[in-house]
């Protein structure tokens, strides 16, 4: 007798949500940190200009 293939689609969706979600979250964190550094660089430039004046 042939056994039916179990329905494990919910676990498939869960697995790929974790994998792709984790990757996207990390990429997002890189973008956020890059933008935060850009802002900080802008502030430093303003302070440097203020000191020159």
């Amino acid at each position: 007798m042939i056994e039916a293939i179990p329905d494990t689609r919910a676990y498939l969706i869960g697995g790929y949500s974790v994998i792709l979600g984790g990757l996207l979250l990390y990429v997002f964190s890189l973008i956020v940190r890059w933008r935060a550094l850009a802002r900080e660089e802008g502030w430093l430039a303003e302070i440097e200009q203020g000191e020159k004046k």
Binding site: I5, P6, D7, T8, R9, Y11, L12, G15, Y16, I19
Partner: peptide, 19 residues
């Protein structure tokens, strides 16, 4: 292809091992 014993969840294996 879909694995016969585990079904669709076996597809997690490809990116799980790669990770």
């Amino acid at each position: 292809p879909r694995e016969r014993v585990m079904g669709e969840v076996q597809r997690v294996f490809y990116f799980h091992v790669a990770s």
